[in-house]
């Protein structure tokens, strides 16, 4: 794919991939660790505040991870494939953690299929795609404004990804409060495993 960004130097692999993706991963691990270890707080008000804060932070961290990691990698000269792969490092780690957790009571096949459930894993993966597309278009706009990008900010590819992603999110979570999507998922499960 032709690189239309001018004057963005390609940093080393460590700087353009490991650092942004790794920082995001470490951040998630730290938040996850904190969220699991707040039970010692005796004061009910403080406990509630801490639990709410950490879990909302965790949610937004996972949900919007792709938007920021993608941008950070782009600004360090990472190619499209690297940007996508790097943005999925934390969601993938989260998926692996979930697979290990649910394998306590599901078969290996079911544990992997669990990740296709709209919440939390598939929804997060589909959402990341849309956020990456949005991030791409906003970066283009930013650089175009500074005469550092040669093409159009909004093009068919990222726009289509964004629309598909948002439609899926609507179907997964908003339409019938996710009930219909969950029904479809259950029917798929029956087809494969029952």
């Amino acid at each position: 794919m032709e690189n239309k960004y001018r004057q963005i130097e390609k940093a080393s692999f460590l700087k353009r991939f490991i650092l942004p993706a790794g920082t995001a991963l470490l951040g998630w691990l730290a938040l996850h660790f904190i969220s699991e270890n707040l039970g010692w707080i005796e004061n009910r008000g403080i406990y509630k505040f801490a639990m709410n804060t950490v879990h909302v932070a965790l949610f937004f961290y996972l949900a919007f991870n792709g938007f920021f990691v993608y941008r950070a990698m782009l600004m360090r000269g990472a190619g499209l494939a690297e940007r996508i792969a790097g943005s999925y490092v934390t969601p993938l780690a989260y998926a692996v953690k979930e697979i290990i957790r649910v394998s306590e009571f599901f078969t290996i096949g079911e544990s992997f299929f669990y990740c296709l459930c709209t919440y939390p894993v598939l929804g997060m993966f589909v959402g990341q795609a849309g956020l990456m597309a949005l991030s791409e278009m906003l970066c283009r706009k930013y650089y175009k404004k500074r005469n550092l990008y040669d093409g159009n900010a909004v093009t068919a590819g990222p726009l289509a990804v964004l629309i598909v992603s948002m439609t899926a999110i609507y179907f997964f979570f908003i339409y019938d409060a996710g009930g219909t999507a969950f029904f479809v998922y259950s029917e798929l499960y029956k087809l494969i495993f029952k």
Partner: peptide
């Protein structure tokens, strides 16, 4: 005592009520 507002954000719980 152990409840909090965003308990649905715990792993696998949001099926019962999606955030926010």
């Amino acid at each position: 005592k152990e409840y909090f507002s965003f308990i649905s954000l715990l792993s696998g719980k949001a099926i019962e009520g999606a955030p926010p």
